[in-house]
Design a protein around this nucleic acid. Structure first.
Length: 109
DNA sequence: ATGTTGACGCATG
DNA sequence: CCATGCGCCAACA
């Protein structure tokens, strides 16, 4: 069981309409937040590159955001700009003008 | 074994 | 609020 498998298994448990953070996932698994980011980043490379369609069906990678409630994939070229936010909004997560969401309200506990 | 690479986070100025 | 700095560590070459 690789470390990234643990990350994926836990991410799979985040319910639709809720979000988690790299720090939270890391804390639950006893891992550094960076490792969590590394594991999810790996998905973008391993999965088929058809129009930015990562395995969001099987692994809801989009539900993991940073501790400030903002999207962290916008600096990656593998993922289209604002794709993550759009998927989350479709799931019911609301973002404000500054592309920030209220963790108090949507953070998975 | 060794060096590099990050979807991070927190402290500090 | 913005900018650095640094600890952190799995995976990979």
């Amino acid at each position: 069981m690789k470390t990234y498998d643990k990350v994926y298994n836990l991410v799979r448990k985040i319910p639709k309409g809720k979000v988690s953070t790299y720090g939270q996932i890391g804390q639950m698994l006893g891992l550094n937040p960076r490792v969590v980011g590394w594991a999810l980043n790996r998905l973008a490379k391993v999965s088929p590159k058809r129009q930015g369609s990562l395995p969001s069906e099987t692994i809801p990678w989009q539900r993991v955001i940073n501790s400030k409630g903002k999207i962290s994939t916008n600096k990656l070229q593998e993922i289209p700009l604002d794709l993550q936010q759009k998927i989350l909004e479709k799931e019911g997560v609301v973002f404000n003008k500054e592309s920030t969401t209220d963790l108090k309200k949507y953070l998975w506990k």
